[in-house]
Design a protein around this nucleic acid. Sequence first.
DNA 1: TATATTTGACCGGG
DNA 2: CCCGGTCAAATATA
Length: 183
Amino acid sequence: MGYGKLSTCNIHIFFRKTIDSRIEVSGTVGDGYSWRKYGQKGILNSKFPRCYFRCTHKHVQGCKALKQVQQLEDDSNMFEIRYIGHHTCAPPNTSSHHRVVLDSKKFKNRHYSQICSNPSISTNNQNDAFLKQEDLCYNVSLANDAQLTPAWVWNEIITDDFDESFKSDQTLSDISFDDVMFS
DNA sequence: TATATTTGACCGGG
DNA sequence: CCCGGTCAAATATA
């Protein structure tokens, strides 16, 4: 998949179909919403497992939003974060940055055998993304109040790094130019 | 005691 | 039947 080099500070947007479904790469995983982890899977040919989260208010508010987090293969200590679906619950509260702490002790004690049971997953790296809800409860401010940029501006800026469907996607206007810069 | 996490089972699509 | 996404019982945590 080709990707552009859009970034907001430490957030790189690889692909963004809509405001609700998108993939980001960041050193932080918090977004202000409250998430509940419901699964973790080893992924074929991936060093790190993928963690699955759903909105904490799925039942009380019927919120269908999902989130998947997986650490990147490289040593950048970054995470690929994919958002799926629309939040119908209350929006995030105020911002404060929060860095994920990798719990290598838990990895050794509890999860090593599970990860190893998949022979295609390397176990060289003892760090792992054991993401808990608390890791996801803190905000990475995305400047929700920033002015939105019309889709045609993005169509001018975005080049061949993006596929055609992305370039023609009118929901690009969900992205704020004030908050996104090329690197 | 209530809520969150862990983790193997389960299931559906390719 | 493999892979990845979800369920849910057991377990941990506040």
